[in-house]
Amino acid sequence: MLDDRARMEAAKKEKVEQILAEFQLQEEDLKKVMRRMQKEMDRGLRLETHEEASVKMLPTYVRSTPEGSEVGDFLSLDLGGTNFRVMLVKVGEGEEGQWSVKTKHQMYSIPEDAMTGTAEMLFDYISECISDFLDKHQMKHKKLPLGFTFSFPVRHEDIDKGILLNWTKGFKASGAEGNNVVGLLRDAIKRRGDFEMDVVAMVNDTVATMISCYYEDHQCEVGMIVGTGCNACYMEEMQNVELVEGDEGRMCVNTEWGAFGDSGELDEFLLEYDRLVDESSANPGQQLYEKLIGGKYMGELVRLVLLRLVDENLLFHGEASEQLRTRGAFETRFVSQVESDTGDRKQIYNILSTLGLRPSTTDCDIVRRACESVSTRAAHMCSAGLAGVINRMRESRSEDVMRITVGVDGSVYKLHPSFKERFHASVRRLTPSCEITFIESEEGSGRGAALVSAVACKKACMLGQ
């Protein structure tokens, strides 16, 4: 009897593995994704193909990295998701002549009506938060230079001027797309009239992360975010950046690689679950690469896999709870928690219980395998993109072996128990001629924006502006 049951459990697990095998990517698959990513990057950089390229390769006008001589107080704003952060950054000489960066910050959550109302409502709310922060720190009387981390696709015309191309991540505030974001912020500050600010720089969160990590390690020339969304930036040779005049030196390019796949480059790798996630998203047909990796989508992918296993009578005796059938019910943090389970399955059992399920031991094991399959594919897909960037940098610099540091931020990278190990191992397999160091950014977005502002202020002083 026991043997029969054991055989049935083994057969069930084997069927589960057959279904989950769809998520496995072979090294040849990853090399294919990497080569296609490089081709799209090239198209994004070139003037004649930029418009139709899915990977936009947006110039950021960040050319210099901090040298350690900029000092002063800077205000930093960070808008990239449902939370908005205001930070005071003091850049100065530390002990023994070292450079020191001290920060104080406060988080504000953005109400739904500000995210989806008008641009005026959104930026009025942001300036209200700045006003509140300055009151708390008794700094209303000071006109501070301000660095703005704005983590949406922007076409820069200068370091302090950028046109919002399109909202992502659930934002829909009308009247912002096609307009200068810094102008919208300046107008809102003017409307309030109770404080003055000098907006000197606007950067993407990947750029802010790279600059913040450069402060720790001067070989950091790539910034990457794996959180709600997924994106990367890197220092490109100016001669390859056709959208900006000049051939000397390097400029940081914001790849906006989340949109890779929007022209069909990933079609052969998309599964039924991916198509369902895409169809029910706020932007169907867009940001397809990001939807395979980002935390906004990972939990939902797992939920759809679990429903398939229920329908195949391989999980929960073929019956799903009402909660499990509800879109968004299986949160991405559950994926991390399930994979963090120590082996007694308590954590998995508790999560499934909150979803109205009474799982068996085998159910718990199957749910864990589903989570591992989805998150491992995410790590491997992400590795193909980064390997594409790094191999490109090595080739354009004609280096036999390139040493490089990548600064990384984002909740999936930082909080998932195995993502970074799987990701690092896969990147290294795909970049055999590179020695890569990964560092995690601390308060990256805010500190990085302030350091970019410090560079901009120093330049302005040198130019006598």
Rank of each mutant, 00 (worst) to 15 (best):
D3L: 12
D3V: 07
D4N: 14
D4Q: 08
R7D: 12
R7C: 11
R7L: 11
R7V: 13
R7Y: 08
M8Q: 13
M8C: 09
E9Q: 12
E9N: 09
A10P: 09
A11H: 08
E14V: 11
K15S: 14
E17Y: 06
I19M: 09
L20D: 06
F23M: 14
Q26E: 07
Q26M: 12
E27A: 07
E27H: 11
E27Y: 07
D29P: 08
M34L: 13
Q38Y: 07
K39V: 12
K39I: 13
E40K: 05
E40R: 04
M41L: 11
L47R: 14
T49F: 09
T49R: 12
T49I: 08
E51K: 05
E52N: 06
S54K: 05
M57P: 04
M57F: 01
P59A: 05
T60D: 03
S64P: 15
E70M: 06
E70L: 13
D73R: 10
D73N: 15
L75M: 14
L79S: 01
G81D: 07
G81T: 03
N83E: 01
R85F: 02
R85T: 02
R85S: 01
L88G: 07
E93P: 15
E93R: 07
G97Y: 08
Q98T: 13
Q98G: 13
K102F: 05
K102Y: 07
T103W: 06
K104I: 13
Q106L: 09
M107H: 06
S109N: 08
S109T: 13
P111N: 10
E112V: 14
A114K: 14
A114H: 11
G117K: 06
G117L: 04
T118R: 04
D124L: 07
Y125L: 04
I126A: 04
S127C: 08
S127T: 02
S127V: 14
E128C: 14
C129V: 00
F133T: 04
K136W: 06
H137M: 15
H141C: 04
L144Y: 09
P145V: 14
G147T: 07
F148R: 03
T149W: 04
V154K: 01
E157I: 11
D160G: 01
K161E: 07
K161A: 13
G162L: 01
N166C: 09
N166K: 06
G170N: 04
F171K: 02
K172L: 03
A173W: 05
A173K: 01
S174P: 00
S174W: 01
S174T: 10
G175L: 01
E177Q: 00
N180F: 02
V182N: 00
G183Q: 15
R186A: 04
D187W: 00
K190H: 00
K190Q: 05
D194N: 08
F195S: 01
E196T: 02
D198S: 07
V200G: 05
V200H: 01
V200T: 06
A201L: 03
M202Q: 00
V203C: 04
N204V: 07
D205F: 07
D205N: 05
T206M: 00
V207H: 06
M210P: 09
I211T: 15
S212G: 04
C213Q: 03
Y215V: 15
E216Q: 13
D217V: 14
Q219E: 15
C220V: 14
C220S: 10
E221K: 12
V222E: 01
G223Q: 00
G223L: 00
I225C: 00
I225H: 01
G227F: 00
A232G: 04
A232M: 11
Y234K: 00
E236Q: 05
E237C: 01
M238S: 13
Q239R: 12
Q239N: 03
Q239W: 13
Q239G: 14
V241D: 00
V244E: 01
G246E: 01
D247W: 08
E248Q: 14
G249T: 05
R250A: 15
T255R: 01
W257F: 04
W257T: 02
G261M: 04
D267T: 07
L270K: 09
L270Q: 12
D274G: 04
R275A: 14
E279Y: 15
S280G: 08
S281K: 04
N283A: 12
P284R: 12
P284Q: 07
Q286C: 13
Q287K: 05
Q287N: 06
K291W: 03
G294N: 00
G295E: 04
M298V: 06
E300D: 13
L306P: 03
L307R: 11
R308T: 13
R308P: 08
L309T: 10
V310P: 07
D311W: 07
N313R: 12
L314E: 06
L315T: 09
A320H: 08
S321V: 09
E322P: 10
L324C: 10
T326I: 14
R327P: 09
G328H: 05
F330S: 04
T332C: 08
Q337P: 11
E339A: 04
E339P: 05
T342W: 07
G343Q: 09
G343F: 06
D344M: 08
Q347L: 12
I348H: 10
Y349M: 10
N350H: 09
I351E: 12
L352K: 14
L352T: 13
R358A: 13
S360P: 14
T362L: 08
C364L: 07
C364N: 10
D365E: 12
I366K: 08
V367P: 01
R368C: 06
R369I: 09
R369A: 07
R369K: 04
E372W: 08
E372C: 08
V374T: 04
V374A: 07
V374L: 08
S375A: 08
T376C: 13
R377F: 01
A378M: 01
A378P: 06
A378Q: 08
C382K: 00
S383A: 10
G388W: 00
V389P: 04
M393L: 13
R394W: 04
S396V: 12
S398D: 05
S398A: 11
S398C: 06
D400Q: 10
V401C: 10
M402C: 11
M402S: 12
T405W: 14
V406L: 04
D409N: 06
G410F: 03
S411F: 03
S411Q: 07
Y413Q: 00
K414N: 11
K414H: 13
H416N: 08
H416T: 12
S418C: 14
F419A: 06
K420H: 06
F423W: 03
A425V: 08
A425T: 09
V427Y: 07
R428Q: 07
R428W: 10
R429K: 11
L430H: 08
P432N: 06
P432T: 10
C434S: 08
E435R: 12
T437E: 14
E440F: 11
E440L: 15
S441K: 04
E442Y: 15
E442T: 14
E442I: 15
G446N: 07
G446D: 00
V452Q: 15
A454Q: 05
V455C: 15
K459A: 15
A460F: 15
G464T: 09
G464P: 12
G464F: 10
